[in-house]
Design a protein around this nucleic acid. Structure first.
Lengths: 145, 145
DNA sequence: TCCATTACTTATCATTTGATAATAAAATAA
DNA sequence: TTATTTTATTATCAAATGATAAGTAATGGA
């Protein structure tokens, strides 16, 4: 296994992943929500409660810009902020009922397309996919260094 | 293998892929180039020659906006356009010597970080990664429907 | 107590990106 | 030939995003 070849394969693979991700998410259409705002909601959905600082770090955006987008999302009642009782500088961000609803719809929409993608896969195929995901996750993509 | 579980695993996996992709590319710093322009150059690099229409389709941007960014890249002598001798409406976009140079540097930088990522992988690990990439590519990400 | 640090916010400005209308030139179909 | 379609461009405007300065409030250490 030549490491150079593996790199080329890796590049082609990540390109394909980005392509498929785009296809799966492209028909998720939340009214008047920007891509950055959607990304933030998605992150909150899977990681809540989170602080603005955590969002800022994970989404690679400055804290002031994060704060601005969170304010917009809060104004639209998609999220709410609760201050920490221990450290009152900290705020915990959560989805509201409305926010949960739209994100569940969004995920349902994505899952539907995903299920289409694997609709003709055999039981063995699904096992193979599962194992392959595990291997890559463990050996390449989740090496918390 | 529950398909719902597989979806959840898939979501976590694609998130990790995006995260790692970001880490690998973040220190590629080409002077005064915007993210969109970099994406275009990357696409040209691996697919040249390409037409503006193809770039427009693959990068999910309108033809006018594609044209604008290509003009900027051409002004900076990173790309050049050659019109088709058969169909003179068509233009083929290629990297110039300068363009090739900066993209080779960019890829070298990414590859260096990738090699760090797998530096402690055994021969068997590399084989496993290679096989896993193949399986996912074949069974999930390259189902040209 | 005083000072430095942390978490977050507000405000502002520049740049990037997206959307759309209008145009031109070449190819193709009627 | 004329009309239609395709490919690409230019121009313009709006919106999204990024960068930075300044400020507030709470915390924690000296």
């Amino acid at each position: 296994m030549d490491k150079k070849d593996l790199f080329n394969q890796f590049v082609a693979f990540t390109t394909a992943v980005h392509q498929v991700t785009h296809e799966l998410t492209q028909n998720v259409k939340i009214d008047n929500i920007t891509p950055v705002q959607y990304k933030i909601l998605e992150y909150i959905k899977v990681s809540q409660p989170v602080t603005p600082t955590e969002i800022s770090d994970c989404q690679h955006m400055s804290l002031p810009n994060t704060s601005r987008e969170l304010r917009k999302l809060q104004e639209r009642k998609f999220i709410e902020k609760i201050s920490d009782t221990e450290d009152r500088r900290k705020h915990y961000v959560c989805l509201t009922k409305t926010g949960e609803k739209i994100m569940e719809d969004a995920f349902a929409c994505i899952e539907e397309r995903f299920q289409q993608l694997i609709q003709y896969s055999s039981k063995k195929d699904l096992e193979d996919i599962h194992n392959a995901l595990n291997i890559l996750d463990e050996k390449v993509f989740n090496t918390k260094s």
